[in-house]
């Protein structure tokens, strides 16, 4: 198991290295002057030259690449052109919102989806199953911003239980910050949970038809015991795959929800940086997101191996 994780770790580092080359090549080496992009077509030649110099664009590309990678490793991501603050600081502030939100939303997704999917599978074709399938169908079809607005209307405006938007920051203590994340997390989690519950249900229905579940019943286990002790873990592999994809999405794919709830998250940062053509920020954030997807995939791989002993020996 340990050697499996180690081998995967080496693969992870190689993938990361390749990703830095790709991101750098696309944003800096391909035709098109980054300084020109940032300043627009009507910039004065001397401003352009000054920015080129400031960005180090006069140096050869390999040198710039090494400089950038060294910065990534040491946490020095350069200074944002539009915000005039170090990019590392910007990213850290935004991650303080986006990361807890993503974890919160994924935890909710899992807590809703797995029991719901298992319940529907155990009561196949019953009223419960039909009800769960109908509810998840609506959950997938409903746009999350609409759901977000309904939630804000009900819980923030009518009932006044939770704030309608904004983020007080963690300095005021964990509770106010968490309160501000509840509605966005629910709005993000419901559609994701609908997808995951359906995956859970169909995966579990497949495993419930497997021979070893019948063997377990022949040993004297009740239908419920056979499901919990034998089928459930076997059904987790596809569920883990979807969860990995969902986490990557939740980390940066939440621009709409961040806008609805006025959250200063990573999604908004990327959106604004692209609008303002702040390539320094774009480059670092894209790299961060690529790295997070790679790391999440690594964690999913390790989780596969933890669930399934057959995968531990393969490379």
């Amino acid at each position: 198991m340990l050697s499996f994780a180690l081998r995967r770790m080496i693969a992870l580092l190689v993938t990361l290295a390749v990703a830095t080359v790709l991101v750098f090549t696309v944003l800096e080496v391909l035709p098109g002057d980054p300084a020109q992009v940032m300043l627009g077509t009507e910039a004065r030649p001397d401003t352009l030259a000054a920015l080129r110099d400031k960005l180090g664009l006069n140096q050869p590309a390999p040198e710039r690449y090494l400089h950038w990678v060294a910065g990534l490793v040491t946490g020095d991501l350069g200074v944002s052109y539009t915000y005039a603050t170090p990019v590392a600081e910007l990213v850290r502030d935004r991650l303080a919102v986006s990361l807890p939100l993503a974890v919160f939303a994924l935890a909710l997704t899992t807590l809703i989806a797995i029991p719901l999917g298992a319940w529907a599978a155990a009561r196949r074709n019953s009223a419960v199953d039909v009800g769960v399938m109908a509810a998840t169908q609506i959950g997938i079809a409903a746009p999350n911003f609409w759901l977000a607005m309904l939630l804000a209307l009900l819980f923030a405006i009518t009932l006044r239980w939770l704030p309608a938007g904004g983020f007080p920051g963690w300095s005021a203590g964990p509770w106010p910050a968490l309160r501000a994340l509840i509605l966005p997390a629910v709005a993000l989690a419901l559609p994701q949970a609908s997808i995951l519950a359906r995956v859970m249900r169909s995966s579990l229905l497949d495993t419930l038809g497997d021979d070893y579940v019948r063997t377990a019943r022949a040993k004297g286990l009740s239908a419920g015991q056979a499901l919990r002790r034998h089928a459930l873990r076997n059904a987790m592999i596809p569920v883990l795959t979807i969860m990995g994809l969902q986490f990557s999405f939740l980390l940066a794919g939440t621009i709409i929800i961040e806008n609805v709830f006025y959250l200063p998250g990573l999604g908004r940062l990327v959106f604004q940086a692209i609008n303002q053509r702040d390539l320094i920020v774009v480059k670092s954030v894209v790299m961060l997101l690529v790295a997070s997807v790679i790391v999440v995939n690594f964690l999913v791989d390790v989780a596969y191996a933890a669930v399934d002993p057959r995968l531990r020996r393969r490379g």
Binding site: Y212, R214, T215, A218, G220, S222
Partner: peptide, 26 residues
């Protein structure tokens, strides 16, 4: 059904054809 569960395995044992799939792989 609960009484039947007490009979399966305890009073009647069953051996299946496909040893490959009759065991839980995990």
């Amino acid at each position: 059904e609960p009484d039947m569960c007490r009979i399966r395995g305890r009073r009647v044992g069953m051996i299946f054809q496909e040893p490959m799939t009759a065991l839980n792989p995990l």
